[in-house]
Amino acid sequence: MGLMNTSRMKSPWIIHVNCTACNGCDIEVVAALTPMFDVERFGIVNVGNPKHADVMVVTGCVNPKTARVLKNIYDQMPEPKLVLAIGACGGTGGIFAECYNVLGGPDKVIPVDAYVPGCPPRPEAIIDGAVAALGLFEAKAKAMKEKAKKAAEKAKAEA
């Protein structure tokens, strides 16, 4: 595990991105932060700033305007990062998948690591999703290190 990995698992800071959601999932995400469910028990804090965040919690389907925003926010998050898609819309677009201005779920734009089904999912389900996603951190960190190593080697080769 290592100190770093334990820390990563115990301190996932989230950024909540509302793409084109109906608010149902959003209020359940917020509810998960409040006393009754209190995800701060797991070190989860809503930082609201991609540069600090480790986990992106996406609600809703994606339309062309939010696709741009979502991509941008995702790019601004430092590695290792996870994406948790909430709700039916977060998976496939849900009931809105056939709308003219809906591209589909967030996975059309960015890689999504875990999906939480439900419309909207209960806060308990969101907690389950977060806990399941945290297990992926170790692999993500490893991938990040390898990527950095490769970049360094490439830079060396060029020089």
């Binding site: 770093m4 820390s7 800071w13 701060e40 070190g43 480790d54 430092p78 950095a148």
Partner: peptide, 27 residues
């Protein structure tokens, strides 16, 4: 957290945060 009637994070939470931040990609 207790003042807000929540359970709250572990006492060592700031250290977890600190070490996690050290391990992030430097952007």
């Amino acid at each position: 957290a207790r003042l807000q009637n929540r359970f709250g994070p572990p006492i060592l939470q700031p250290f977890y945060d600190f070490f996690k931040l050290l391990g992030k990609e430097s952007i």
